[in-house]
């Protein structure tokens, strides 16, 4: 009896204060949330497996409100913060009214009462009802960090490989990359990009250490898609190709690095990159 009461109490608490998607483990859910929101690259929304679309440009604001809510954390974001982000040139009261109308339209679009929770003027996207790719990305990358700390265990390495692959799948491209740029997008966009690049360098090092060259190369190549002037990525890639005997690819990578640094930063590769290049030349001559 006590257990049932407690469990009902917890259920009620969950309904009132849903746990944010940010903090949860990347475990499989027992139920599939009815709403799916993609923001990494294309912006797409589905409800019950059907796309939710707005065709007229002037009616785009409800989606912008949803995007801003996600960009600003998704949980208990103050309506004033959202209104200031979306209508920066509108006065306080008018902006609040516009916020209320836009939220009403957004709710009507989905037709799910509990999807957007407004308490004390703070708006939450209910993580029990919505799957958001950036939340999944953050959960997965946090899990990867914990796995990297125990990367000497072969079982952990297998998990790392799986979750790392999931990260690359989730990160199609930068947050809301195809949308018109807004200042409120930038912080999350840069944070996710930076986190993925950090993961690529950390996980790549682990794969190199275990002579899992293909895994390391795949990660570094993905890293260069995100950051074409990341010299450390080029250096690591050169080492991977060199140590697997693929000298031609190693040399190509060096030249690609030199071209990119010259074109985008007007600089030469660093001494360390040139030293790697020399090691390639020595091996090419010897062979």
């Amino acid at each position: 009896m006590g257990i049932n009461l407690e469990s009902r109490h917890i259920q009620r608490l969950h309904q009132r204060h849903p746990v944010s998607g940010w903090s949860r483990e990347p475990a499989e859910r027992h139920h599939e949330p009815p709403v799916r929101i993609h923001t990494l690259g294309r912006f797409a929304v589905q409800a019950h497996h059907q796309p939710v679309t707005l065709t007229q440009q002037r009616r785009h604001k409800p989606f912008e409100l949803l995007q801003a809510l996600i960009a600003l954390g998704g949980r208990e974001v103050h309506s004033e913060t959202l209104a200031a982000a979306l209508w920066p040139d509108t006065d306080g009261d008018k902006a609040q009214n516009t916020f209320d109308v836009t939220l009403h339209r957004l709710r009507r679009l989905f037709g799910m009462k509990e999807l957007f929770l407004l308490n004390d003027r703070r708006l939450t996207l209910n993580s029990q009802m919505a799957w958001v790719d950036v939340w999944a990305f953050e959960r997965t990358i946090n899990h990867c960090e914990r796995l990297l700390a125990r990367s000497t265990d072969p079982a952990v390495l297998r998990q790392l490989s799986r979750y790392s692959e999931r990260l690359l799948t989730l990160y199609q491209s930068a947050f809301l990359e195809r949308e018109a740029v807004r200042p409120w997008m930038l912080s999350l966009r840069e944070r996710l990009r930076s986190k993925l690049l950090r993961h690529i360098l950390d996980a790549g090092k682990v794969w190199q250490h275990h002579n899992e060259w293909a895994q390391a190369i795949r990660l570094y190549q993905k890293g260069l898609e995100i950051e074409p002037v990341g010299e450390t990525l080029y250096q690591r890639l050169i080492v991977c190709y060199r140590d697997t005997g693929n000298l031609a690819e190693a040399l190509n990578t060096f030249h690609q690095c030199r071209r990119q640094l010259a074109a985008q930063l007007q600089i030469q590769p660093s001494l360390r990159t040139f030293t790697l290049y020399q090691s390639l030349r020595t091996r090419t001559t010897a062979s």
Binding site: V181, P183, G230, E231, Q264, L265, S270
Partner: peptide, 19 residues
């Protein structure tokens, strides 16, 4: 992208205009 440890003024990078 690159800092000179001996000379803090020497910093290589890019300035991106978002808009």
């Amino acid at each position: 992208y690159r800092r000179d440890r001996t000379d803090p003024q020497r910093v290589n990078g890019v300035l991106e205009s978002v808009e």
